[in-house]
């Protein structure tokens, strides 16, 4: 019975990488304590990987640990989450992203270079323009972004990051 329950939990995490603890408990109809126990066992065996970001705990299959780390860094600021949501609809240029989000182009440029480094977006040169596309499974990205609940410090820090990334003089 315990083994069956654990297999069910693992299958759900594999089907929905990045599912949050709450969503997993809701989906499987499990109690918090029960799920905590099984997840602790699965994590100890290296079959799942979990990380708390913002106010949520995200759970991934163990083999996705490296990907998960990159994705969680990618969604850790509000501007990057908004950029990813926009790129989910269609490929866009930096200028379009800046206009859509009402943010300065240097700020967008900083975030795009971070997202490129993390491998979450792809840049393609077309003539004189650089078009950005999402380079990761949109369903997983959407799940992570939708579940993200930033704390007060996160919100303040995100504002400061945008200010510092976009401001200053040469």
């Amino acid at each position: 019975m315990t083994g069956e329950r654990r297999r069910e939990i693992l299958a759900t995490i594999q089907r929905k990488p990045g599912i949050t603890f709450r969503a997993l408990a809701r989906e499987l109809g499990l109690g918090i304590g029960d799920l905590q126990y099984h997840l602790a066992r699965l994590e100890k065996e290296g079959r799942v990987f979990s990380r708390k970001v913002g106010r949520r705990r995200y759970i991934f299959p163990g083999r996705m640990e490296e990907d998960a780390q990159r994705l969680l860094i990618a969604i850790s600021t509000e501007t990057r989450r908004n950029i990813l949501l926009l790129l989910m609809n269609r490929p866009m240029m930096q200028k379009e992203l800046a206009e859509a989000l009402g943010i300065s182009q240097p700020t967008i440029n900083y975030h795009m270079s971070e997202l490129l480094k993390l491998g979450v977006v792809r840049a393609e040169k077309k003539g004189r323009n650089v078009i950005y596309t999402l380079a990761y499974d949109p369903e997983t990205v959407l799940r992570l972004v939708n579940e993200y609940r930033p704390g007060l410090w996160d919100k303040l820090a995100d504002g400061l990051i945008d200010l510092l990334a976009g401001g200053g003089w040469e």
Partner: peptide, 8 residues
């Protein structure tokens, strides 16, 4: 927090 997130 901003430094930890951005390394700026």
């Amino acid at each position: 927090v901003a430094y930890r997130k951005s390394h700026l």
